Simulated scan of single mutants.
Amino acid sequence: MSNAHVMLGLLSRGQQHGYDLKRAHDEQFPAARPLAYGQVYATLQRLEKQGLVEPVTVERVDGPDRTVYALTDAGRTELADWLDSPEPPSPYVSNPLAVKVTLTILAAGEQEAHTYLRRQRAAHLDRMRDYTRTKTEPSSSLPQVLAADYALAHLDADLRWIDTALQRVGALTKEITS
Rank of each mutant, 00 (worst) to 15 (best):
Ala107Arg: 11
Leu103Asp: 14
Asp130Cys: 01
Lys135Ala: 04
Met128Asp: 08
Lys135Cys: 03
Thr136Tyr: 15
Arg118Tyr: 04
Asp126His: 09
Thr104Asp: 10
Asp130Pro: 02
Thr134Tyr: 01
Asp130Arg: 04
Val101Glu: 08
Leu106Val: 13
Arg119Asn: 08
Arg133Met: 03
Arg119Pro: 03
Ala113Leu: 05
Ile105Met: 04
Leu117Ile: 08
Asp126Cys: 00
Met128Gln: 14
Thr136Arg: 12
Leu106Cys: 03
Glu137Ala: 14
Thr104Lys: 09
Lys100Arg: 15
Ala113Asn: 07
Pro138Thr: 05
Leu125Gly: 01
Ala107Ser: 09
Asp126Phe: 00
Lys135Val: 06
Glu110Leu: 08
Val99Lys: 13
Asp126Ile: 05
Leu106Arg: 14
Glu112Trp: 02
Ala113Ile: 08
Ala123Arg: 06
Tyr131Leu: 05
Val99Gln: 14
Arg129Gly: 02
Leu125Glu: 13
Val99Pro: 00
Ala107Val: 09
Lys100Gly: 07
Arg121Pro: 00
Glu110Gln: 15
Val99Glu: 15
Gly109Pro: 02
Ala123Cys: 01
Leu125Asp: 07
Leu117Pro: 12
Lys100Trp: 10
Gln111Ile: 09
Glu112Ala: 10
Ala122Gln: 12
Gln120Glu: 14
Leu103His: 13
Thr134Gly: 01
Val101Asn: 06
Tyr131Pro: 00
Lys135Asn: 03
Arg129Trp: 06
His114Lys: 09
Glu137Thr: 14
Asp126Val: 05
Arg121Ile: 03
Arg118Val: 12
Tyr116Ala: 09
Glu137Cys: 10
Thr132Gln: 11
Arg121Ala: 06
Tyr116Val: 06
Arg118Asn: 10
Pro138Ile: 01
Glu112Met: 02
Asp130Asn: 02
His114Cys: 02
His114Leu: 12
Thr134Val: 15
Thr136Phe: 15
Thr136Asp: 04
Asp130Gly: 01
Glu112His: 05
Thr132Ser: 07
Ala98Arg: 12
Gln120Arg: 13
Ala98Ile: 00
Val99Ala: 15
Arg129Val: 14
Thr132Ile: 00
Lys135Thr: 04
Glu110Lys: 14
Ala108Phe: 12
Ala108Asp: 14
Arg129Gln: 11
Glu112Pro: 02
Val101Leu: 15
Pro138Phe: 02
Arg129Phe: 04
Val101Met: 14
Ala107Asp: 14
Glu110Arg: 15
Arg118Cys: 05
Gln111Ser: 09
Thr115Glu: 11
Thr104Glu: 10
Arg119Ala: 08
Leu106Ile: 13
Glu137His: 12
Lys135Phe: 00
Ala113Gly: 05
Ile105Lys: 00
Leu106Gly: 02
Ala108Trp: 02
Arg121Tyr: 13
Thr134Leu: 10
Thr115Val: 13
Tyr116His: 11
Val99Ile: 15
Thr102Gly: 11
